[in-house]
Structures are given as C-alpha cells and as structure tokens.
Nucleic acid binder design. Structure first.
Length: 563
RNA sequence: UGGGGAGUCGUCCAACGGCAGGACGGCAGCCUCUGGAGCUGCUUAUAGGGGUUCGAAUCCUCUCUCCCCAGCCA
C-alpha cells in the first residue's frame, strides 16, 4: 500500500553491529531503545531516531524498547507520554510490552549510588549552584575540588539517606561523583548524580524528593534493560567517558554508546524552544499546525508513515553535521501518494464557464480513472453539465509564450469530458473584472478523444457547477523564507525569516461530488494541483482540506524563473 | 587558548589501499487525456600542504575550517 521502502543501505552503526555479531559480543543479541524525555512533542528529527533504533532491531532480529526518560519531574507530564506513544505507533513501530520508564529504576539507582558512596566514588556536596559553577572552572582552566569532597563514607551515607528522606530543601545539597576536577572534559569534573527536588513526579508521585541526573540515570537504565547499542546524538559524545565510568565503577552490564548526527532540515526549525515561540506567539495555530515539522503537524498535513520511514532511510546515518534538503521529504511523500492517492477533480479558484451549445437541462455521467498508477483502484462517474467551473489560472486573456491552456479562440480538453473552445469573455462593464467564459463544446469528443485525431495542447480540470460541493482548502508553503532560518541580521532571530505567506486559505473551492462525506484524514490528489487530505476542522456541511504537497509544476517553475 | 567530534557533487549518503558511486535538486530531451507520473542523458565533489606506496578519499604528518561542552536540563 505505501511506497516501496528502498533497500536499506548500510551505515556505520550497522557495521558496528555486524562486527559485534561476528565476534559474538552480547551473545548475539541486538537490543536498542528509543528514550525520549516526556517533556514535549516528537518531531521529524525524533522520527529519524525512532526509525534508526526500531529499524536496527528489526533488521538484526532484535528488540527495541520505548523508554520514557523521566528523571526531571519539574518538566515532564503524562500528556506528553500519550502523544509519544501515539506518534511512535503511527510511524509504524511496536515496542510490545517493553514500555519502560527511567523512574521504574529509581530504587535500583539509589542502591547503586549507595554502592558508589561506599566505594569512595561519590560524595554529598553542600555547594549551592553558583558556588559549584565557580568551582567547576572553565573550558580552559581546571576546576577546584569541593571542600566537601573528602567527607567520610559514613557521613556521605548518612547525608544521602537524609536527602532521600526530605530533610533538606531544594538545591541545598547534591550527590556528586568523585572523578577529576582537572579533567579537560567538564563532564568528568565531579558531575552531579542527584539533586533535591521536592516535586510531584508523574509516576512516582511524592515518593521521591531526590532525582538522578541524565548521565547517571541513562547508563544505568540501559544496563538494567540489557541494551546492547545505546544510540544517541552527537552532543553526548563527550558524555561517553562518564557513561562508561559509572558502569565500570558499578561493575555491571555495560552497553555501548554510539553517537550519530541529529537531523536538520532546511526552511524549518527543529527545536522545542523555537516551536514554543511559534505556538505561543501565534505564528502557527498549535503543535499540530500542518506547517510544523512535529509528528502531529506532519500527520495533519497528510504525510504518511511510509513516506517518513522512507525518508529516514534515504537521509542515511552518519557522524557529520548536515542539513537535509526539504525537497527530499517532499519527494518521499509524493512518491508514496502518487501510488496510493485516488485522483479527483477540484477547482480551487473558480472561474465560471458556460457551454453555450450544451442543453440547459442535460447532465451526463462521464467515466474517470481513479488512479492511473493503479488500475485496480477502478473508475468513477463524474457529472457534466452546461455550467462548469475551471481554475482561474487555466485561462488567460493574453496568454504568454508557452501557455497551453485556455484563451479566447483556443481549444483545450476538459479532462475525461469534451474539447471546448472559448468563444467569448464576459466582463463586468464597470470594473472590467472577469465574470465568466462562454465556450462551445464538440459533442464528438465525448470522453476526451477526438475522432478526427486533432490534438490539443492542454487538458484542464473542471467541476460541474450544479453538482459541485463547497469546501475550504488550506494551502501551505515553507514556514521560513531562508534555507537557514538563523541567517539573520544582528540582533534579530529566526522569526524575522518567517514566511508571511506560509498559509493561504481558500474558502470558495468547488469539488466533484464524489468527495462528499470524505472522512477526516483521508487523502487524495486534486488533479494537476497536488495531494490533499481532509482536516479535522471539517464538519458535516463543510469540508476542509489541507494541501500536503503540490505536484511538481514545470510550468509554474518556468514562470517563476522568467520573473 | 582545555576537551571531544567532523570535513567527498548544490544537498544527503556510499566507496574500508585498486576505475570516486547512488539518491534528491538542477539542466536538456522523450512520452503523456494531470505542464503529474514515467523514461533517457548531462551536470558537479575527495578542505590544503607534505610524506608512505606500483597505486591514497582511505595510511602517516602538518595546517585550515566547522560543530559540541563551563544546567542541581536531557
């Protein structure tokens, strides 16, 4: 049903896994995980990670866990957990019963921390945040050891237990790993393992008032779940020594962390912070606005899971920072929809046409193909009558060179119907505004073929006025004007590059009647215009469509270039 | 200026000492009852300098450029 997924090419992570399989590492298991923090909505960048982790498991006969990385109760909410689940499922992956939470392991993490204290590898520090920053040093200068670093094991044990019991206020103490304050890698300068946060956690409620930090929680969670390949993005590369340090000191099962470059796409933004600005400042209507590269936005826009999976395959996986061309995403969705979307006729900017030699009260039903790429999708009947609508853009009073469509005295084909010739252009006498066209049809060309073999240069779409259903259609364009949204003048931000025309709402659209009752989310191609899907804003008496993507339009491109 | 990474067509990814290849984009053409789809062809790249080698994108070396790190965020 969806586009054929191109044979998955290899990448450096697969090569590592193949090598591990060859040497018998991990007893030939492959076990990955997708570990989002439930503090926001997933976007196309997450989709890359999802496809990578679940895809690897699938390809090598392993498993992939869904793990919610919920170690910060002040930022995380159940609402996000549900949307993450929905999005992962929608892209097409299944984690079986392996839905885990970092918070599932809080007790184990606590016990491990006690072990590290006993080993002399962790201590309770009374420095506040500002002091700790001062002690940490800078990128070029080493840090200074905390004055609390040499506390006895007994005192550390006592203090840590009392931290857990809630005896101390937020921020007053931390548990820190005792590593190396002079390390060039700042992550190794006695990093915080636990902070005090008297906050309600979405799963553990009020049970805890100390919460583990990412570096400590993540490696331990991976270890507990028996993850073999812990795949994360490049910015965690210099956290890897810490990941390894914890697991080595704990002497527990030790997964391998592997880093890859996150996805960047041109003409859009990809950070939660920027999404928030767009939503809060009203530049888009919400997280699921079809212009947003969020999963919910893409879904509402009409993107298919298959297209997204295919896209994830095509962009590849590597370690170098890169910016993928948005055109590739568009190629992927067109490729999918071309094969799967039924064709239909819709006039977005209607121009009335009267076929003057066609009987007033006559209606015919003409056969139309549902998808030329797939004869199995059958045919349908489209009503034709004396008064029609055609696309305004398909008529020109003064046709420029290379314009094949309708003009005064010119003959074109109405798709699946008749050849027509424009014989008269009716305008408002006062304003000069174009009102309607008078055309004549050739009855011998019924169905769209002329028995005498004469050719027309253009075929245009149309809708019978008497049978048309009304709809609203929302056209979308790139959110940003510049490929690099951050390419701005001094003192400005990406929002100065916002495309003021990223949304165009058309309220007077005419659709062929077969579309009546179309269900929310259903997709189709409006012939010659693009792929569209039914928006949830649709109601019983009014359909609303989103344009997912235009068709390639060489005429429009040539016009644009001519300007 | 500390530490960690990365440099291959316009873009993304390959090539793992042996003819630099694919995809997207662009351009040209064919075909077409969607100016769609499809098909054909073309286009263009190993950051730079030294070295090793019969042979280097690949190994060594020096240089340059870019990205990440100074949260009790992840």
């Amino acid at each position: 049903m969806s586009a054929p997924e191109t044979p998955a090419p290899s990448n450096f992570i697969k090569e590592i896994i193949k090598e591990d399989l060859k040497t018998g590492k991990n007893n030939n298991r492959v076990h990955t995980r997708f570990p989002p923090e439930p503090n926001g909505y997933l976007h196309i960048g997450h989709a890359k990670s999802i496809c990578l982790n679940f895809g690897l498991a699938k390809e090598f006969g392993g498993m992939c866990n869904l793990r919610l990385d919920d170690t910060n109760p002040t930022k995380e909410e159940v609402e996000y957990v549900e949307s993450i689940r929905e999005d992962v499922r929608w892209i097409g992956f299944d984690w079986g019963d392996r839905e885990y939470y970092a918070s599932d392991y809080f007790e184990q993490m606590y016990q491990y921390a006690v072990q590290l204290i006993k080993k002399g590898r962790a201590f309770v520090c009374d420095l506040n945040a500002d002091e700790m920053r001062a002690y940490r040093g800078t990128l070029t200068e080493p840090g200074k050891e905390s004055p609390f670093r040499s506390r006895s094991v007994e005192e550390n044990l006592d203090l840590f237990e009392r931290m857990r019991k809630g005896e101390f206020p937020d921020g007053s103490r931390t548990l820190r790993a005792k590593i190396d304050m002079s390390s060039g890698n700042i992550n190794m300068r006695d990093p915080v393992m636990y902070r005090i946060l008297h906050a309600e956690h979405h799963r553990t409620g009020g049970k805890w008032c100390i919460y583990p930090m990412y570096d400590y929680a993540h490696c331990v969670s991976d270890s507990i779940e028996g993850i073999t390949h812990s795949i994360c993005t490049l910015e965690f590369e210099d956290h890897r020594p810490l990941y390894d340090w914890f697991l080595d000191e704990l002497n527990v099962y030790h997964p391998q962390q592997i880093e890859f470059a996150r996805l960047n796409l041109n003409y859009t933004v990809m950070s939660k912070r920027k999404f928030l600005q767009l939503v809060n400042e009203g530049h888009v209507k919400g997280w699921d606005d079809p212009r947003m590269p969020t999963m919910s936005g893409l879904r509402r826009r009409g993107y298919t899971p298959g297209a997204i999976r295919n896209f994830a395959e095509r962009i590849g996986v590597a370690k170098r920072d890169s910016v993928v061309d948005f055109a590739l995403l568009e190629y992927c969705i067109r490729e999918d929809l071309n094969r799967t979307a039924p064709r239909v006729m819709a006039v977005l900017k209607p121009l009335k046409v009267v076929i003057t030699n066609y009987p007033e009260d006559k209606t015919e039903e003409l056969d139309a193909v549902n998808n030329p790429e797939d004869p199995g999708m059958g045919t349908r009947r489209v009503p034709f009558s004396r008064v029609l609508y055609i696309e305004k853009d398909d008529f020109r009073e003064a046709p420029p060179k290379g314009f094949f469509r309708l003009a005064l005295g010119r003959e074109v084909r109405l798709r699946y119907a008749y050849y027509i010739i424009c014989v008269n252009v009716i305008k408002d006498e006062k304003t000069g505004e174009l009102i309607e066209l008078h055309c004549t049809y050739d009855p011998a060309t019924r169905g769209g073929d002329s028995p005498d073999g004469r050719k027309v240069k253009a075929t245009i779409h149309w809708v019978s006025a008497a049978h048309a259903i009304e709809a609203e259609v929302r056209l979308y364009d790139y959110l940003l004007l510049k490929a690099d949204p951050d390419d701005v003048e001094e003192g400005k931000d990406f929002k100065s590059n916002l495309n003021p025309n990223s949304l165009e709402v058309l309220t007077d659209c005419k659709l062929e009647p077969s579309l009546s009752g179309a269900k929310t989310g259903s997709r189709c191609q409006f012939e010659r215009l693009g792929y569209f899907c039914v928006d949830p804003d649709s109601s019983k008496d009014k359909l609303v469509f989103n344009r997912t993507v235009t068709l390639k339009d060489t005429w429009a491109k040539a016009q644009k270039k001519g300007k």
